[in-house]
Simulated scan of single mutants.
Amino acid sequence: MEFYEFSKDCGKKISKFNSDFIMSRIIQTDKSAHIGCMYLDKNGIVGYHQAVAPQLLIIVHGEGYVKGEKDEYCKVQTGDAVYWEKDEWHETKTNTGLTAIVIESEELTSSLFMPLKKQMIKDNLS
């Protein structure tokens, strides 16, 4: 499990075509990808399971907790992205609600675009 961030501070100012915005690049893939938006309500959970393909969970609203194969939860929030390899066991849950974009593809190379997050907050939740 790796943690990345795509916050505004990680982005680049775009002015081409008379534009004025910040773009935080996330991913590029040459192979097909499944992209979806996941909505977890209060006390929602994506149960512990193996990733069917390399997977990127991009938190766009709210906060929650993720765990990988180790039995420790790490807090995630808006602006965080979590990467799991194919077959890696993982779980996502929230107490207050969370919205995330999920990208699954045999070819994900997040590290080319997003910086690794320097520190994750670990929590001993049960």
Rank of each mutant, 00 (worst) to 15 (best):
T92N: 03
I58S: 02
I101M: 04
I26K: 09
I103T: 12
K8H: 07
T29P: 10
S126P: 06
L108S: 02
M23S: 07
E63Y: 12
C37W: 13
S110F: 05
T78W: 03
K8C: 05
F6K: 00
G79C: 05
D123F: 10
A81R: 00
N124G: 08
A81G: 13
G64R: 00
L112S: 11
S7P: 01
L125I: 06
L112C: 11
Q28N: 09
K117M: 14
G68V: 05
Q50G: 10
S32Y: 10
L116I: 11
M114I: 12
E88C: 09
E69M: 12
L40W: 01
G79S: 06
S15P: 07
H61Y: 14
N124D: 14
N43A: 09
Y73T: 00
I101W: 00
M38E: 13
C10I: 07
E63A: 15
H90N: 04
I121N: 09
K122R: 11
C37M: 15
S19P: 03
L56F: 07
A100C: 09
K70T: 11
E2D: 15
S32C: 08
K75T: 07
K31E: 15
E72F: 06
P54W: 03
M1Y: 04
E91S: 05
K70V: 09
G47A: 07
H90E: 05
V82T: 14
F17I: 06
N95L: 12
V60E: 02
F21V: 05
A100D: 02
F113T: 09
I45C: 11
I45D: 09
S105T: 14
V102P: 02
E72C: 07
V66R: 00
A33N: 11
G36F: 08
T92H: 11
E85Y: 15
Y73H: 02
M1W: 04
G79H: 09
G62H: 01
H49I: 05
W89I: 13
G62T: 03
I26V: 15
S105D: 14
